[in-house]
Design a protein around this nucleic acid. Structure first.
Lengths: 332, 332
DNA sequence: GTGAAAGCGCTAACAC
DNA sequence: GTGTTAGCGCTTTCAC
């Protein structure tokens, strides 16, 4: 049997409520008893039962982290891992635990959330992707459960979120390529279903427009988030016309593009990925990539969520995290 | 206010205990009332409060996953990520949540564990590394708290654990190299502090012995788990003598070795890593590596732990997970 | 400044 | 079969 607040109370010759007050550092307790209680706690090696505390407080000091279903490469994508690290660090600092869970597929996601929320197991939830018309966001909004998403949601005014400025990030990349003399720039993105694809496409289009280059729909592809889909898209694109640069929305996609290019013996096409994965620097040629600062995204997500849970006044409902193009041989 | 068991009871005109019985599918409840209660639950959209349930049951159906401190590359090492995936899948299937936490450094680790255990927040704990004279294991043993470790512990009879057969895995690698005609084989491992280093070194020594090759201490290094340390070790080793093969205990180490070799213009030294990271296949030349099946390690760790928690009779206190050498250009 | 008592939502022993 | 009751360990009114 573990030691409870009652045991401490007995030992210190006070009532349980007094012990509770000492724990929460309540002011109107005399220093003398405070000392006595603390001593008793130390002697008995008392540790509060957080479950019991959670039940009374209706707060578990736990954040739910939902990783998306379906994507087999989920945990292989360093983005999630780095984000988790940021979340975990900040949460720990603030005394929160992280409940880690994953959906088996897209349909499963709301189900998982419903259990998490309904069971009252977590004070808030962190979503790691945003889709068009996101069912999970809709659900959490409906349930009025605190949450934050990594990615810019539809209703950017209401929802709490953190994201990079994806339009600008891609704009800068394309603009740079144009300044370097590239004129026919292809775009290969992941599924349009993901917001991030959309915003990066917008940045691409914007850069073309400002530089008076007409967008060519035959140079724009939005397929799956896989190396294979990107490989196929590239082959198709090349059949129509070989661009002098290709920008992508993910390193994984860039890998597929590079494979297709090399196979065709094409060498002078610039290439840019996103997420700055470790592998991109080991490719031949090494691939330039945009570092999205995932750990910082995670940290600030945790921050927004915890502030929200604790009703800390906030000046904003979102944070924009800076990005940085890491140039390598593929854009030299 | 969320709906409680009482609300359901009122609605169905039964007592709370009856509702509770329906939830746990207790046998001696008439089908009629069962139906009525179920209907009420559905209408009210009732979801049990797991915190309350945990308090009475003294079980949270949550597993604590502790990731080690200090190592900055913690989450970058795909081993942990893959293991997490295996753990998470199995746990979910069995209705358990995963509480994810990390220590900031080695001293912090017992502290974190103590809080986790003392707060009664988790039913069991998964440790992801084992050290010589492991403080965390000692602590959990002392507290008699269910736990399982990934890695072979000192007291392999008592503790529950999963691991690869690291002696055999390395033995097979070295034996294969010898069969291929290599005679001077170097060993570069991570810190001796980690059990895994020790076992792999044993496998290395065993293979040499069986093949009547005398071990040469100048060809054996145990340093940090970093690319840099491996790079330095290799340079030192070469100064003494260039081996015709080098085996390592981690891909990261193999990368450092390869860098040193390439810099010296040495090309005919076979090289083998461990963990079969994605990067190893993209290196030039691609690096052969032992796949340790981390996801399976995680799955079986979860299995052992949950069985232990639920007092399911078990025929064993450990599982040995198979490994597989993935041959690439570095051993061709 | 401190204690008594009620209550958080659930389960389980004990009645009937 | 079903209801009554006590209790899990804590916090928090409300007394004094």
């Amino acid at each position: 049997m573990s030691v409870t607040i009652k045991d401490v109370a007995n030992r210190a010759n006070v009532s349980p409520s007094t012990v509770s007050r000492v724990i929460s550092n309540n002011s109107r307790i005399s220093d003398a008893t405070k000392e006595r209680v603390r001593a008793a706690m130390a002697e008995l090696n008392y540790q509060p039962n957080l479950i019991a505390r959670s039940l009374t407080n209706k707060s578990t000091k736990t954040l739910g982290l939902l990783l998306p279903g379906s994507k087999a490469d989920l945990l292989l994508n360093p983005f999630f891992v780095q984000a988790m690290r940021g979340i975990s660090s900040y949460a720990k600092e603030k005394g929160y635990y992280i409940l880690f869970t994953h959906a088996d597929n897209d349909e499963d996601e709301v189900e998982v959330l419903s259990n998490l929320v309904g069971s009252q197991w977590v004070d808030g939830i962190i979503l790691t992707t945003v889709k068009d018309n996101d069912k999970s966001i809709a659900f959490l909004q409906y349930r009025k459960h605190p949450f934050v998403v990594i990615g810019k949601p539809d209703d950017e005014k209401i929802t709490y979120w953190v994201d990079n400025d994806n339009i600008k990030a891609m704009y800068d990349v394309v603009d740079l390529l144009i300044k370097k003399g590239k004129k026919n720039i292809g775009f290969i993105g992941g599924s349009h279903e993901f917001k991030v694809t959309k915003y990066r496409l917008l940045g691409y289009l914007k850069a073309l427009k400002i530089n008076n280059i007409k967008a060519d729909l035959n140079l724009i592809y939005e397929k799956d988030y896989t190396e294979e889909a990107a490989y196929e898209a590239t082959k198709e694109m090349i059949e129509y016309q070989t661009p002098d640069a290709i920008v992508t929305t993910d390193d994984l996609i860039a890998f597929g593009v590079q494979r297709a290019l090399l196979e065709q013996g094409i060498e002078d096409v610039s290439l840019v990925g996103f997420n700055n994965t470790v592998i991109s620097q080991y490719k031949k040629p090494s691939i330039s990539s945009v570092d999205i600062n995932a750990e910082k995204l995670g940290m600030f997500a945790a921050k927004l969520l915890i502030n929200q849970i604790e009703d800390t006044p906030m000046e904003t409902n979102n944070y924009i995290i800076d990005t940085k193009l890491i140039e390598r041989d593929s854009t030299k």
